[in-house]
Amino acid sequence: MIGVDMWADVRCPWCWIGMRRLQRARGALPEQVRVRRRSFLLEPEGPVSPGRATAHVARSEWGMTAEQWESKSRHIRSVGRAEGVEINLDGAVMFDSRRIHRLLKLAEATDSVDTDAAWDSAFAAHFGHNRNLGEAETLRELATSWSVDGVGLEHALAGASFADEVIGDQEDARRLAISSVPTIVAADGRQISGMAPLDELTDFLAAAGVVS
């Protein structure tokens, strides 16, 4: 089995696109590829303007003109469609992603949950349906759709569990000089952007080597 790590943030549209592209690369190989999902926080302490639409923040805080933002948003939508995802970037709400990352760690630790599907549904909720993943009730609904609920869910929401794992991923990213996502890392330390062309991703996975 080939093993790689992939750092991503649910708030990053390129990470959803990269995850889908990586799935295609995995499918092109005869060997099974295990991807360990790693948390990367674009804003480790949370956004300056939680609850505000990305389009508004881009123009009011990032200094982009309406034309610049529309060009960027249109490009991301186009690349997303090529990978089979519809991204409504304009209406995506800014939120603190620490809690959703804790829930995704809980999902990964739950044998009955497909971690890849959980990540995909989190991206779809944020970018496809523009759900506010900063709201606890929305997160509960999402986790319940993965068949994750009960005390474990509440502990993860509150930060009583999986907080250290999320912090550990962030520290590992810093140690490996990962400054942007999506980034994929092989066992030997080689790195590649998750947005690399499909053939480059496939070659990277093929050369990553088998892990136990």
Rank of each mutant, 00 (worst) to 15 (best):
D5K: 12
D9V: 09
M19L: 12
R24A: 07
A25F: 05
A28K: 14
P30E: 13
E31A: 15
S39W: 10
S39I: 07
L41A: 06
L42I: 10
E43G: 02
E43R: 15
R52E: 08
R52H: 10
T54L: 07
H56K: 01
V57W: 06
E61I: 02
E70G: 01
K72V: 15
K72H: 15
G80N: 07
R81C: 06
G84T: 03
V85F: 10
D90L: 07
R102M: 04
A109L: 04
S112E: 09
D116A: 10
A117D: 15
S121V: 02
A122F: 06
F123G: 03
A125T: 00
F127E: 10
G128Y: 06
H129Q: 02
L139N: 06
A143M: 02
T144E: 06
S145K: 00
W146K: 02
G150Q: 01
V151P: 00
G159P: 03
I167S: 09
G168S: 07
R175H: 03
I178V: 08
P182S: 11
T183V: 06
T183Y: 05
V185E: 13
D188K: 14
R190E: 10
R190Q: 10
I192W: 05
S193K: 10
A196D: 12
L201E: 03
D203M: 04
F204A: 11
V210H: 14
